[in-house]
């Protein structure tokens, strides 16, 4: 989660290894490393492996056939479109919030940061119910929306809204520590030289934060694409209409269409692995620059 935290080079040589009990430390070290690696293989690697093993168990042709089913294709399309709407909105919010918090002093800053982080700790199902109670027929705006013939619940609009909710902390969280650490001297210099706010952001701030922004966006996209609980409450799960890819997986799985479910799951797994790869690359860049 924290971005600048990972710097393997910092592991200092074990001081204990030179002590009187050096030998036990060495073998203890080996036991701990082995235990960690075995558990990781069993707990984290095996679930990924089993997805691909199952998806390709009947060969590539069968895999392709289960992906190109119209319902699955529609789910992929819907997931992509809704995420493509939600993620940019979230980027704008993330940059704005990070700018306001990092560049200015104002009372209530800590409260604001806590408010931003709230969605992290809330169950997606609870978030879904909360949205239902705003825009659903019995919700706060239910009557008003019905009078004006506007439907939000059980449409892609609702999917976008809950995606915005569950992903809202991601971009800010990556930008804020970096922007706070960098201070605002460069921006202030640009401002005194007469640059406009937008010029300052584009020419001075953006180059400094682009990797963190990219990373936050990647995390945000991964979460938006993969969101299940909140989307399953507000989408209505209408087959071939409001099912996103994670919901489609559940549907196929419950239909005993294992091949289809695993094929769909494997596409999302590939996205997750790419996310991790981008994260590793960006962290190395940030680590190298700093």
């Amino acid at each position: 989660m924290s971005m600048a935290a990972l710097d393997p080079a910092r592991a200092f040589p074990q001081a204990a290894a030179v002590g009187a009990n050096g030998r036990t430390t060495r073998s203890g070290q080996r036991v701990l490393i082995t235990a960690g690696l075995v558990l990781t293989a069993l707990f984290l690697v095996a679930p990924v492996a089993v997805i691909f093993a199952q998806a390709f168990s009947r060969g590539f042709a069968a895999y392709r056939a289960s992906i190109v089913q119209p319902e699955t294709l529609h789910a992929i399309w819907l997931t992509a479109v809704t995420a493509l709407i939600a993620v940019p909105i979230n980027m704008v919010f993330g940059v704005a919030a990070a700018w306001a918090i990092a560049k200015f002093r104002f009372p209530g800053k800590k409260t604001l940061i806590s408010l931003i982080e709230i969605p992290f700790s809330i169950s997606p199902i609870v978030a879904g119910v909360a949205y239902l109670l705003v825009y659903g027929s019995q919700g706060l705006f239910g009557e008003w929306l019905a009078d004006h013939d506007i439907r939000i619940m059980f449409t892609p609009a609702a999917i976008v809204l809950v995606m915005l909710f569950v992903t809202s902390p991601f971009v800010v969280r990556e930008l804020l520590p970096l922007m706070q650490a960098q201070g605002s001297e460069q921006e202030e210099a640009a401002a005194t030289l007469g640059a406009t706010g937008f010029q300052i952001f584009r020419r001075v701030t953006l180059p400094n934060i682009r990797w963190a922004l990219l990373y936050g966006t990647v995390l945000c996209s991964a979460r938006a694409i993969g969101e299940f609980g909140a989307v399953s409450v507000v989408s209505g799960r209408i087959r071939g209409e409001t099912n996103t890819l994670p919901l489609q997986i559940e549907l196929l799985y419950n239909d005993y269409n294992a091949a289809g479910a695993f094929a769909a799951a494997s596409t999302l797994t590939v996205i997750a692995l790419i996310t991790l790869l981008i994260k590793a690359i960006i962290e190395r860049r940030i680590g190298g620059a700093g």
Binding site: A11, V50, R223, L247, T275, L276
Partner: peptide, 30 residues
């Protein structure tokens, strides 16, 4: 990850975030 060096450490370090990147439905099925 902090104290020891071992082959594949970077890989393991990246892998630890998998549960956040992997959609929960996929994790459940797997």
């Amino acid at each position: 990850l902090v104290r020891y060096d071992f082959p594949g450490k970077r890989f393991v370090d990246a892998l630890v975030d998998l549960p956040f990147a992997l959609p929960t439905a996929v994790a459940g099925v797997a």
